[in-house]
Amino acid sequence: MTVLAFSRDLFERIGNFTIFLAQTVRFLFKRPVRPRLYFEQMERIGVHSVPIITLSSLAIGMIFALQMVSLLQPFRAEIATGSAVAITMAREFAPVITTLMLIAKNGSAMAAEIGTMKVTEQIDAMETMSVDPIHYLVVPRVVASIIMFPMLTMLANIVGVVGAYVISVGVYDLEGATYLSQMFRDLKPNDVISGLIKAAVMGAIVSTICTYHGLHSGSGAKGVGESSTNAVVASSVAILIADYVMAMIMMQVMY
């Protein structure tokens, strides 16, 4: 592909995606609202993700504490492990780990499911019945993601801190009461809030990118597979970039 063709293709995609976003926003407020679809998606994204998010944030919290204690011990500052873990989890690790897990678990499924509906003409069928696929399929997933990503991030925060406590106090014998009081002194509400805001934004990014790829899936099993892979890659890259940008802004205004 020539550079010219490539950039034209890129601009066309960006244009299409922008139109898609505008339509999604418009349908957010359009009736009829179908509560069942929202609950279904919230259950799939939220409830069904509790085990994997618990497991991964517990592991991150424990590993993080392990590293922190051994790094801080030479300075006799290991008691600060609690604060360090709680703050970095709240600001960065909880939203990012949660989002990456949800991309793998739900983002890929969104693209594959909608992609399959597209190639088997179920999307066409929906349109013949005057139901807009963005309204019916995309909006519930986007809304459910914006709600559930922060809730799971909150779960990851709590579980991560518990994991760190178990390692620090249980394994390394740090003094529990001091550990906790320092942690609660250093951890500010804004640390948690900023992470939750990030998670909500990432939920919006992931769900729109993945549903978009599904709706623009190529034909056949191959097309669906490709759209699902592309959705995962594109949303992973997008959330890492978004995280960096949001971190810079939040450094200025929130911390």
Binding site: M117, E121, Q122, D124, A125, T128, M129
Partner: peptide, 30 residues
């Protein structure tokens, strides 16, 4: 489109819904 019914060549049934829900879909939505 409300005045049209379209039976697709490859059925295009919603595979996440059962038969009853498939047939009820246009009744509800249209």
């Amino acid at each position: 489109r409300r005045s049209f019914g379209y039976a697709f060549q490859d059925d295009a049934l919603f595979d996440s819904m059962n038969v009853g829900e498939n047939i009820a879909f246009p009744l509800r939505e249209v």
